[in-house]
Design a protein around this nucleic acid. Structure first.
Lengths: 339, 339
DNA sequence: TTGTAGGCGTTATCAG
DNA sequence: CTGATAACGCCTACAA
C-alpha cells in the first residue's frame, strides 16, 4: 500500500507531465521539451513520450503554464445584458480581433440580479478571471461611473460614449453619426428633420439626438421635440402614424433601422411615399439579408474595426483616452432632394 | 543593494499575496484567509490586510488558484465561423446558463485560415485553454467527424444534428421542426407543400428538408424537388417569383424567416395573397421587433433552454448521447386552411 | 541529449 | 487567531 501513487487516490487530478514522464521513463523536463517542440530530444525519446501522451490523454495545464509565464493570452469581456441589441455584434468583432493575435475571449454577463449595475462589480468579477485585459460594455451609464478607478494591473477599457478621467473609453461615434445623418439631410435641402429617439435609458440614443440637435442648430433651424420609441419596428409604426400628421416635416432621422422600417410602413399606409414625399434614414445597417430589397439609407459601424480597437486597447494599455470609432453613411434610396 | 526586493527587478510581475503579507506584516496564509472571507481572523488584522490589498491593488491570481484547485469554473466554446447566423444566439444561451452557475465562457473562433475545418483542431485549441468542458459548434460537418475521439479528461459536446458514437452531441431539433411544420400544414388541408432549402453546406437545411420529406411521404404525397436559396431575403424573393408560377402549390415551408419574407413579398407582387391563396411558414422566429406587424408563422427554439443543456452537458459529463432540443410552433397569420 | 533544482501564487493541513 | 510547510504543473537555468 505504501507504494500506491497518490494520484490514484485523487480521481479529479488531471494527467500531468510528471505522469507522462513516469510512463515514458524520462524526466518531466524531457516531456516539456517534447510538448513544446524543442529541438534537443532524440527521435526515439520523442516517440516514447508522444506515445505516453496519447495513451494517457495528457493535455498541458493552462494553470501551470500561466503561473509560470504570468500571462494568459486572454481578454475578459463583460456586458450587463448580453441580449441587448448590438452587444452580440460587438462581441463578434472582439473575438475575431483576438483570434488574429492568438488570444481567446472570456465572457461574463452581470445578469439581472446585479442591480444596480456597477462598473466596480464588473471589474472585480473580471479580475478573478484568467485575463490580461478587460473590456466592460456599458449599455447604460452606471451609478459609480464618475467615482470608478480601474484596478491597477488590469488594463481596463469601458465601452461607452462618455469620457472618463482615469480609464480609456471607446464606442462607435454615436454623436458623429447624429451630425453626419443630419448634415446629409440638410445637404439634400431638408430642414424640417424629425428625430425618433430610442428608450430613455439608452445613452446611444441620447448622443445621436445631441448630434442631430447640434447639426440643426448650426444650420439655424430649431429642432422639434423628438418622438420616442422602444427600438422596435412596431413602435416605429406608431410613431410613423403620428409623423404622417406633421405637415412641415420632410425628413425623418430614425434612431435605428427597425424603427425606420416601421415608420416607412406607416407613412406608406398614410399615402406618404418615401423618398418622394419624405426622406428617411436609419442607423446600424442591421437589415442586410433580413428583408427583401433593403433600400434604407443608414449608417454602418465596422464591427471588426471596432473590435480590433477594443482588443488593442485592452491588451496594449496606454494613457486614458476616449476613442470614438466613426461610422460610414450607406447611401441607398430612402433619401431624395427636397421636392 | 542586497536588500532590493526581487519584485522591483521584474516590472511585469503582478502583486501577490506574499507582497500583501509583507506590506501588512502578516503571513501569506492570513492574507489568503482575509481574501477568502474565512472567519478566524481578528478584525484588526483583517483591516490591516484589506488596507494593504487596496494600496497595492492586489488581485488574486487565477493561475495560482486553479493550479491548486484543479478546476477553472469556465467552459470553452469554439465556432468555426462566429458570424454565421445563429451562432451568436446560441452563444447567448450558453453565457446566461454559465452565469447562473457562476461560470464564465471562453470563446475562440477557428477562423477562415483553418481549412479544412477539423474537430480535432478545435479540441486541441480548446484543451490549452482554462476550461473544464468544451462545446464545439459544427455549423458544417467536418471531415474528421466519424474518426474523432474526444480528449479524455476534457468533457466535450458537439453541436450538431448528427449523432456520434464517442461524443455527446446536441442541437435544436431541425428534423423535428421539419416534420412539425409539414404536419401543421397538412392538418390545414395542404398537400402541395414546397420546401425552400438553404445553401448546400448547411446540415440544418438538410435536416429540415428530411423532416419535410418524411412527413409528406407519411401522408402519401410525393415531394416536389425543393428550390434552394442562400438564407437571404433577396434569394427568397427570387424563389418566390418562381413559386408564383407553380399552379399546384398551396403552401411554402421556407428554410428560414428571411427567405419567407422574400417569398411573401414576391408572391404579393405576383398577385398571390398570403395566407388567402398560399400559406407560408418560416423557421427561427428571428423577425420579432425587426419588421412592423410581424405575422409570420414560424418555429422558435428557446436559446436559453438550449444553452442550459449545452452547458450542463459540457460540465456534467455522462455517457455519449444525442440530444435534440425541440422547437415550438409560433402560430401567427400566414397559414390558413386550404381554400 | 538528458536530468535536477527552483520558483511562479495559491490553499489545505497541521502546528503553535 | 496566526504561521510554517508542502504541493498543485510547468518552464528557465544550469549541470551532467
Amino acid at each position: 500500500m505504501d507504494k500506491m501513487p497518490k494520484a490514484a487516490c485523487d480521481a479529479h487530478r488531471s494527467v500531468s507531465m510528471a505522469d507522462v514522464a513516469a510512463a515514458a521513463g524520462v524526466s518531466q523536463q524531457t516531456v516539456s521539451r517534447v510538448v513544446n517542440g524543442q529541438p534537443n530530444v532524440s527521435q526515439a525519446t520523442r516517440d516514447r513520450v508522444n506515445k505516453a501522451i496519447a495513451e494517457l490523454g495528457f493535455r498541458p495545464s493552462f494553470a501551470g503554464r500561466s503561473l509560470r509565464s504570468g500571462r494568459y493570452r486572454n481578454v475578459g469581456l463583460c456586458t450587463f445584458d448580453i441580449s441587448m441589441a448590438g452587444n452580440l455584434s460587438m462581441f463578434e468583432g472582439v473575438v475575431i480581433a483576438a483570434r488574429e493575435q492568438g488570444y481567446a475571449v472570456t465572457m461574463i454577463e452581470m445578469g439581472p440580479e446585479q442591480v444596480p449595475y456597477l462598473v466596480s462589480s464588473a471589474t472585480h468579477r473580471l479580475a478573478e478571471l484568467p485575463v490580461d485585459g478587460a473590456i466592460i460594455n456599458l449599455s447604460v451609464l452606471p451609478e459609480d461611473f464618475e467615482d470608478y478607478t480601474p484596478l491597477p494591473g488590469l488594463e481596463t477599457v469601458l465601452v461607452t460614449m462618455y469620457a472618463h478621467p482615469r480609464c480609456t473609453t471607446i464606442d462607435a461615434d454615436q454623436y458623429g453619426c447624429g451630425t453626419m445623418i443630419t448634415n446629409y439631410l440638410l445637404e439634400h435641402g431638408h430642414t424640417q428633420i424629425r428625430f425618433v429617439a430610442g428608450p430613455t435609458y439608452s445613452s446611444h440614443s441620447d448622443f445621436r439626438e445631441a448630434g442631430w440637435r447640434d447639426a440643426l442648430e448650426a444650420a439655424n433651424v430649431s429642432p422639434v421635440e423628438p418622438l420616442r420609441g422602444d427600438w422596435s419596428a412596431d413602435s416605429g409604426y406608431e410613431i410613423g402614424l403620428k409623423l404622417a400628421q406633421d405637415r412641415e416635416m420632410t425628413a425623418v432621422f430614425a434612431g435605428n433601422d427597425q424603427m425606420a422600417l416601421g415608420i416607412i410602413a406607416a407613412l406608406a399606409n398614410s399615402g406618404i411615399s418615401v423618398p418622394d414625399d419624405v426622406s428617411v434614414v436609419g442607423v446600424d445597417d442591421s437589415l442586410r439579408g433580413i428583408i427583401p430589397h433593403n433600400d434604407l439609407t443608414t449608417v454602418r459601424f465596422d464591427m471588426l474595426e471596432r473590435g480590433r480597437m477594443m482588443f488593442d486597447l485592452a491588451v496594449g494599455g496606454g494613457p486614458a483616452r476616449a476613442v470614438r470609432v466613426p461610422g460610414k453613411l450607406v447611401e441607398r434610396s430612402t433619401v431624395a432632394d427636397i421636392r
